[in-house]
Design a binder for these strands. Structure first.
Length: 277
DNA sequence: CGGGCCTCCCCT
DNA sequence: AGGGGAGGCCCG
């Protein structure tokens, strides 16, 4: 279903009037480098832009109910995953039980998708980019468990620091009403680690946030290791580091002010390294 | 302050 | 269908 050419109308969020989608497309205007099938997930309808031409091979945009991704058949991971996070959506998500239905993405060309076996016994978690806890319906949650929304993530990182980042971003969305959030991997270094020689392990991860109420943006950046360390960057810095523009339609007035992202600080140091000493 | 309960991240 | 562990929160 995702990846269906020209199929953006049937898979749009339910109840969203078509006129609004058209308006989004018009508002996006020149900021829309290419066409997108799910403008509602992006700021001003403009999908994140991959600036680095070496990263665009074998990429496909996939649209889901509550998020959109661009997937790379080279890394066999998403290059970004984007959500429009609202208070109402989180209210709906909150009542839902989490069903861990991890699955390979069938809507990709043969051989480009990661398989469950790539991750099994790898020592890495299947780390969501757009979090399961953000998904407002059972169907949306199932979609969130596609491997097209996953990267190999250090288990300690995923279950501690990253979980707290996701949690404080949800809290911020509740406080300010709505956010646009773009999450993605960073592949640094010359010899990237791979799972089964197929799925590339990111060296870092980022989560960029645009807060409409404050008209400010910023991003968390963390190394994909057992750590509690994180960095906060403005969007220009992030674009330079990642080669991805998370919010191509970001107002110029929001590029300089750096959103005061809440600290995801832990109360205790990470157990792995600490326990080893 | 501590304990119980819930949420949220996963694994085999 | 099993399991674990951390963190938040509420309440005594």
């Amino acid at each position: 279903m995702p990846g269906d050419p020209g199929g953006w109308l049937p898979i749009q969020r339910k109840g969203m009037p078509q006129i609004f989608l058209l308006l989004c497309l018009l508002l996006a205007g020149s900021a829309l480098a290419g066409s997108t099938r799910c403008p509602s997930h992006y700021l001003s309808g403009a999908a994140p832009d991959i600036l680095d031409p070496t990263m665009t091979a074998q990429t496909h945009e996939l649209c889901y109910l509550a998020f959109g991704v661009t997937h790379s058949g080279v890394t066999r991971t998403p290059l970004w995953s984007a959500e429009h996070l609202t208070r109402a959506q989180l209210d709906m998500a909150q009542g839902l039980p989490r069903l861990n239905r991890f699955h390979a993405e069938t809507g990709l060309p043969a051989g480009e998708q990661a398989e469950l076996g790539d991750y099994a016994h790898s020592g890495y978690d299947r780390g969501h980019l757009s979090p399961a806890a953000d998904m407002p319906s059972e169907e949306a949650q199932f979609e969130g468990f596609t491997l097209a929304n996953m990267v190999p993530q250090d288990p300690n990182n995923n279950r501690h620091l990253w979980q707290r980042i996701e949690s404080v971003v949800r809290k911020l969305a509740r406080a300010d009403g709505e956010l646009y959030v773009v999450t993605g991997p960073i592949f640094g270094g010359d010899h990237p680690k791979q799972l089964q020689g197929r799925v590339t392990v990111p060296t870092q991860l980022y989560k960029a946030v645009y807060d409409l109420k404050q008209n400010e943006a910023a991003a968390y950046v963390v190394v994909n290791e057992a750590t509690n360390d994180y960095q906060i960057m403005d969007i220009a810095e992030l674009e330079h580091l990642t080669g991805v523009a998370p919010f191509p339609a970001l107002p110029a007035s929001a590029r300089l002010p750096r959103l005061a992202l809440p600290p995801p600080d832990a109360r205790r140091p990470p157990p792995t390294t600490a326990a080893a000493m």
